[in-house]
Amino acid sequence: MIHLFRALDTPMALDVGSGAVHALDEIAFDALTYMQEHKDATDEQIVTELSATHPMTDVNETVGELRSLIAQGYLDTPDDYGSVPLGDAGVVKAMCLHAAHDCNLRCQYCFADMGAYHMRNRMLLSVDTGKKALDWLIAKSGNRQNLEVDFFGGEPLLNFSAIKEIVAYGRELEKMTGKRFRFTTTTNGVGLNDEIMDFLNREMNNVVISIDGRPDVHDRMRPTPNGKGSYDLVIDKAKEFVRRRNQQKYYIRGTYTHYNLDFANDVLHLADEGFQQLSIEPVVTAPDKPYAIGEADLPRIYEEYERLGREYLKRRADGRWFSFFHFTVDLSGGPCIKRRLTGCGVGNEYVAVTPEGDIYPCHQFVGREGMKMGSVLDGSFDAQMQKRFQHNHVLAKEKCRDCWARFYCSGGCAANAHAFNGDIAKPFDLECQLERKRLECAMAIFALEQENNLAAVEKEAVEPPPCL
């Protein structure tokens, strides 16, 4: 399967089976388009057809190049990965550990019911339950050496003292078992202080801080319990935290809504504030909310990703470098095919644990009826539900089988599929469309940056040194 597209005014082709990405000129784009539409066409027919609009010599060259790429296995390669074994059933190696089902903000779009997760009581994780969660993860991790634990909420820093003790316990477990914990934290940043910053920088492999962008955009959706904006509470703390962290291993992560479809301005605002590792995600919420994103917004959003892509290229070239999560796809390497089929591992390799010790497929499933998998307190675990998630890989989803993006999105978010379509195997279409657009932009950016680097190297090679 070949996906032909244009992004950032650049004609491109992705060979789905091999993962090879090609930048094309207009002749190659037209030739490959014709070949896709006329699978049985001979080279002579292709040349005859395209010579009406392009010089025959160029068309001949192009067809030769395309045939060469096909012969080398970089175009039109088989993409039948259906027989890949899915690995060890029953192994869990990653956990979203809910340190708090409470929050010091009241974000309007919060999927977690402003921290309470639709539970009766706001509550904090006890040290004892946290330790039992790590014990459970070790016990379920089979022969895996690398384990991940993300402290999540609500707002996890409301329970900082417990996090410290749980991490210390994890370090002891590492010595006893030979396994390694990769601890991370997702926070709104309100509670950051010197002690917490130093601890997070010492112990956390990655920290995600939620900031939506421009002050008015952020404050509209992320108020405090008394209704005031939280931008001023967070921004300087986040800057200091990132400075102490040497701009490494963090993300400033925002959410955009129907209210700010010009979200490129929010990404650029955060870049202007000195943050270099940025991500902004579309809100996922009930369609009747005034800030929900709908199908009608897609053309505007596509334009905005293109606009962000152009500015991204410009800034990275002129010394104002920053990284945008969705434009940073490792096209030359990337995960192995098995990881691409299984994605985040939801409900299988990856689970969430609540302050009550309950186990859910991931943080977004917490509190949903019928989705509790067990408890770290009594050791119960629904192996049948785990198996259902294990077999819910991208190739098992009817909608994904013929999608060119299936080895990049891995079938999308199961929680969104469940929420919007009532079935973890039926992906949420709006999410699919946005992901495809972002991938196209990422591939074009990769090609354009590579071209610019090549041009710079070539220029350096042929330019004489300046006269002294």
Binding site: G17, S18, G19, A20, V21, H22, A23, L24, D25, I27, D58, E61, T62, E65, L66, S68, L69, G73, Y74, T77, P78, Y81, V84, G87, D88, V91, K93, A94, C96, R144, N146, E148, D150, R182, F325, T328, V329, D330, L331, S332, G333, G334, P335, C336, I337, K338, R339, R340, C344, G345, V346, E349, Y350, C362, F407, C413, M443, F446, A447, E451
Partner: peptide, 30 residues
């Protein structure tokens, strides 16, 4: 090549050690 530039070049069927990160872009098996 004059008309096509291959910028990135899956059939890792080397892979599958299961040690990489799980949770909601990023690599023993040898």
């Amino acid at each position: 090549m004059k008309h096509i530039r291959t910028v990135a070049e899956l059939r890792s069927l080397y892979g599958g050690c299961g040690e990489c990160q799980a949770s909601c872009k990023t690599c023993p098996a040898a």
